[in-house]
Design a protein around this nucleic acid. Sequence first.
DNA 1: ATACTCTTGTTATGTTATAACATTTACATC
DNA 2: GATGTAAATGTTATAACATAACAAGAGTAT
Lengths: 165, 165
Amino acid sequence: MKNFDTVSLSFCGGSHDHGRCVKTALKAAEELCQSRSVRLTDARKRILELVWDSHHPVGAYDVLSKLSQESGKTAPPTVYRALDFLLEQGLIHRIESLNAYVGCAHPTEDHAGLFLICNNCGCAAEVHDETIDQAILTKASNLGFRPEQRTLEVRGICPDCQNPQ
Amino acid sequence: MKNFDTVSLSFCGGSHDHGRCVKTALKAAEELCQSRSVRLTDARKRILELVWDSHHPVGAYDVLSKLSQESGKTAPPTVYRALDFLLEQGLIHRIESLNAYVGCAHPTEDHAGLFLICNNCGCAAEVHDETIDQAILTKASNLGFRPEQRTLEVRGICPDCQNPQ
DNA sequence: ATACTCTTGTTATGTTATAACATTTACATC
DNA sequence: GATGTAAATGTTATAACATAACAAGAGTAT
């Protein structure tokens, strides 16, 4: 499996260059959409940027209000359509336990991720683990269940909030 | 770890005696509440029954409308308060990916369950697996994350829907 | 230019959940 | 059995999240 350890840097306190982080994600998104012959329109791109604005999951209505501020009155379907598109393309993830959305750092990889979500600062980190994947598949298979998608969200305290500076 | 294999019987097609299933759950709930000195009031008990009415997760407003039918006008907070109480006591689980609630068959045990939810019939089965638990804990711990709660929901096709009679 | 499909705009509404405050109930104590 | 107190419930309103349905515009292939 690929090494996604850099993702652990995305806990809130990690003082990474987030502007660069977003730029990379947008570039990847453009290439990915081009390769799939789907259109990353201005609206979709802007909404992807807004979702990426932090490593905190953002609600659809947060996106909506930012969008309304900068582009005048915007209605919910505009946002939800873009979010649906981005979800379909694997460019963002939905965090079910928060009704919120977060950028995906490796949209071309498999999408059975694990989210570590801090109950203190609200940041979310996506990680992947072959052992977990395998254990879940084995269990399901033993019970005769055929998995299609999955949601794995762990709430707790992130390293930065455990050891504040 | 305890053997929860009987839970796999709760896929929709399993023609178990559901009346008995509910009765057992209610009895367990009463004993548990008594032992904890918390009150399983009529409203809470009735709402627990309504959640247990099937192995399909039920929405808060489903419960609300049934309750309104049998007891006259009922407002959302009545239902949500009872659901919150039942969640706190571990008597039900919330399925995040469905915004719905389902009875817990073993409220005294640990609550890091895995839900197998059928995309075809909508039934949900709760299972437990030590290997999965351990793999998740290990991963989190390696990243310095301290877990508090977790959500693990696998959507797919249940055995009964794969092999219809 | 035409036809076609995809995308976006717009209005309205559906669904899920909570805030805030009034009232009632359970029950321990006097 | 009256009284104080905490827990539970009733009530009204509204917040937060999401989609249906249909009209209009933009992109593209022929």
